[in-house]
Design a protein around this nucleic acid. Structure first.
Lengths: 173, 173
DNA sequence: TATTGTTATACTCTATAACTATA
DNA sequence: TATAGTTATAGAGTATAACAATA
């Protein structure tokens, strides 16, 4: 692939050659992406990071991160769920989740109640404050989802969700 | 927070109620995901992290991270590119990219040549060692891509790539 | 003055290991 | 002995700010 081997090697600075074409920074449009755009892994990362970047901005004033939003939503739908179940869902270590849960608890968004039948478990639940904040955050999330719909034609959202789920499942462990 | 005796503020431990249903950990199938599965942002994160997790395992013995793979590929396709151009592509801070580049340089995978016309620029290029390693890494990446194809029907890869690109562009700054 | 690049520092997210308590 | 959960620590990956060199 390297046309002229003399073109760089740390010593040829200034010699005319391939590299000399890049004296000025390339515009994005002039960059050759090679096979990257054909890789699902690459496009997935690009899309995810663009969405994540936008979402972090949108959620900043709520003080809730995208990951915490998922956690709160799961807690709302499954009051009393414990952290071991959450680790199975997220494929995160229990120590990692323990920190997230501690953070949400410190902010008064969730409560943790020891189970009387088996005192090793803590039942997690949204507090009133947590429920209220979650409503606000959910509105912002859904505004972002509607923004995505503006670049999707009818039926394409469902298609995309299905394709993404199949990719996830393909690598489930 | 769970270990905190103050968690007794929840006081309902042991009382029969909603939480009592969850004395034992829920299986994943029994968890209510609420509206999460309908959010593109959520499915994107799940898919991306599943793929990333698998890839990190696959690439471990090469010593190259997924992000470094993209960087090396771009360097191969655009010999002489400089780091400012790379920051535009990746939307990463120049300080962040400087660290990645330093890492690749230390491992002898890329060379950095000062431009003689404008000595502020460094032209980046793969070394022979970098080219050889990239071939190996690319083989692994493409094996993963073929694994994804086993869950996709004819035409669906192209559809997915197109949808992901549109989502990325929708949030391009 | 503006641009390319580096370094110091810090923050977030994550994992591993060692620990406590409970069963 | 096994399970739920916490804490300490460390490693990525990232950003901000201050800086040096060059234009």
């Amino acid at each position: 692939m390297a046309a002229d081997p003399a073109s760089a090697r740390c010593v040829t600075a200034g010699q005319p050659g391939r590299a000399a074409r890049h004296r000025r920074p390339l515009a994005r449009a002039d960059v050759d992406f090679g096979r990257l755009p054909g890789y699902i892994g690459y496009q997935l990362r690009q899309a995810q990071s663009a969405v994540f970047r936008d979402l972090s901005r949108t959620l900043r004033e709520t003080g809730v991160s995208p990951g915490e939003f998922s956690l709160l939503t799961l807690l709302k739908a499954n009051p009393g769920i414990n952290s071991i179940t959450l680790t199975r869902i997220y494929q995160l270590d229990k120590a990692t989740l323990s920190l997230s849960i501690k953070g949400l608890g410190k902010r008064g968004l969730i409560s943790s109640t020891r189970n009387a039948q088996d005192r090793r478990y803590y039942e997690l639940e949204l507090t009133e404050k947590g429920r209220t904040l979650l409503l606000n955050v959910t509105r912002r999330i859904e505004r972002q989802e509607r923004a995505m719909d503006t670049v999707l034609k009818r039926g394409e959202r469902g298609m995309l969700l299905d394709l993404l789920q199949r990719i996830s499942r393909a690598f489930d462990q």
